[in-house]
Simulated scan of single mutants.
Amino acid sequence: MCEISSSICSSPIGDLTISYCRKGLHSISQISPINDQSFIPDEKQTIEIQSSSGKIPIPESCLNWLHTYFHSPNHLTKTPELCPNIISKNDSFQENVWRTLLNNVHFGQTTTYGQLAELTGNKNAARAVGTAVHRNPFQLIVPCHRVIRSNGDIGNYAGKEGNNVKHWLLKHEQK
């Protein structure tokens, strides 16, 4: 069992909520009220802890990664540790999709649901890949925003509520 702590941090795409334990991150996502209507990016916004709860301090590796992603992306290094209780080494299809996305689709690249299915070793599983991507608890770190439709459309990010965020993230990665 993990002892979970959480923090809210500011970022250029709005406040992020980050949950973690001593073993690594459990989740990272935008605060729920952020959607296409309320999304106002601020590229100058720094990564700052707004509040924290729990006994464990937020991993510095996470804060450093977020700062680098938004402000010095050419210097991105190793991703923060992800808790093995969330993304284990077992053969779960969903976790395999997350690991494949994390390890094979790099900053500034995109892939399609079908290509990602093929990378996972199951070329006919594009819809299942879409489900796994939708369930990704590690926004930005496991880059589900880099998965697009085969016709070039961006698809639906955050249940259709975050397509402006996805557009901004893809544009940010093309700079």
Rank of each mutant, 00 (worst) to 15 (best):
54 G>L: 03
18 I>S: 12
31 I>T: 07
101 L>G: 12
41 P>N: 08
21 C>I: 00
15 D>S: 12
63 L>Y: 08
30 Q>C: 11
125 A>L: 09
132 A>Y: 00
106 H>W: 07
59 P>H: 10
145 H>M: 05
71 H>N: 14
81 E>F: 09
164 N>F: 07
121 G>W: 02
110 T>N: 13
154 I>Q: 15
114 G>H: 03
69 Y>Q: 08
71 H>P: 11
74 N>F: 05
83 C>F: 00
111 T>Y: 03
50 Q>D: 11
143 P>T: 04
138 F>G: 10
50 Q>H: 04
148 I>A: 13
53 S>E: 10
94 Q>L: 12
110 T>V: 09
152 G>Y: 06
25 L>W: 08
56 I>A: 01
90 N>C: 10
169 L>N: 02
6 S>T: 07
37 Q>L: 06
137 P>C: 02
58 I>S: 12
9 C>L: 11
73 P>C: 04
59 P>L: 11
23 K>G: 06
22 R>I: 13
120 T>P: 13
89 K>Y: 12
57 P>H: 02
41 P>K: 04
170 L>N: 05
78 K>D: 15
52 S>E: 05
6 S>W: 09
24 G>C: 05
161 E>M: 13
67 H>G: 10
107 F>S: 02
93 F>M: 08
2 C>N: 08
5 S>I: 01
89 K>A: 12
119 L>M: 15
52 S>L: 01
56 I>D: 04
168 W>D: 05
95 E>G: 11
154 I>M: 15
147 V>T: 09
126 A>V: 08
8 I>K: 07
124 N>W: 13
1 M>V: 06
73 P>L: 04
35 N>D: 15
55 K>F: 09
57 P>M: 01
100 T>Y: 10
162 G>K: 00
163 N>L: 06
96 N>C: 11
175 K>W: 03
56 I>H: 03
68 T>D: 13
174 Q>R: 07
